[in-house]
Amino acid sequence: MNIIIKTKSLTKQYGHILAVDHIDLEVFEGEIFGLLGPNGAGKTTTIRMLTGQIKPTFGEAWIAGYDIIHESIKAKESIGVVPEVSNVYDEMSAWENLIFAAELYDVPRSERSKRAIELLKFFGLYERKEDKVANFSKGMKRRLTIATALIHKPKVIFLDEPTTGLDVQSSRMIRILLKQLNKTGVTIFLTTHYIEEADQLCHRIAIINKGKIIALGSPEELKTKAEEEHIIEISFSISKDVEEYEDIENQLKNLNYVNSISRIGDKFRLYVENTSEAIPIIIDFCRKNNLKIISINTLKPSLEDAFVKITGLSPEIMKIEKETKKRVSLG
């Protein structure tokens, strides 16, 4: 397979912060590659370096064979970029936005209209082509931003958190469109902090945390890694009292063979080394504390479990950060 994106010790330092810390990546032509990590992990910084918006402090990278620093114009001609926040011009129509993109990317004059029509149809915006973008919903703006990034038929498209901030339906639509786009041969490099999204969409995933790549592989490979650990899911007949839950959670965590614990609704998930040793201990604990078990299951690890095991981060942390971020942008 051809390598279309390659980085060598790519690094970005902001003052004391190593936003991106010596990362080495290889992305193959035709794949959907995901950079998965919590907020502040260095995803955006990585994309901004690869797309020539900021200069790396150290290291190198190539896109379609072009050095991103010394041949940045050539590299830029081969890529499309969709930033975290849709950046189409509100004051112009969808059509004008596409034509302006075509002008900047040297699309021959005779092909501009044809491409714009194709893309508007593909992204379901054709009926609204003369409308000012200011009247578009968030999902429509995101689709138009992706369309403008494709006007010059780039080999690679970069998307920074393509579904963040969108409603469920718009997000689903974008994921479907990205898959269709990939089938036409476009390499997709995206970032996300949604584990499920990475799982559904990506052929390969790199997990990034604190600027470092800490795991790399297909979703299946990552799940297999997590399989060395087992999961027991258990629920009890107890009141909905928060303190009681926390109390039980703390006690369960301290049991032998239990590595870590998370809570999903009224269920506890115990990550254990050895199921057959752990289950009797858990049952014993319940009996001693008069806890009535409603259900107990052993689970096949999901990508989320793999993520927890590999990063040591709770998946809840990603969700909490996402919420606060949303609030900030609203306020």
Binding site: T51, G52, Q53, I73, K74, K76, E77, I79, V81, P83, V85, N87, V88, Y89, D90, A101, L104, Y105, D106, T148
Partner: peptide, 13 residues
């Protein structure tokens, strides 16, 4: 408004 990004990612100086 951040639309300057659109110009920065384009193949122009």
């Amino acid at each position: 408004t951040g639309t300057i990004e659109r110009l920065l990612i384009a193949p122009i100086s």
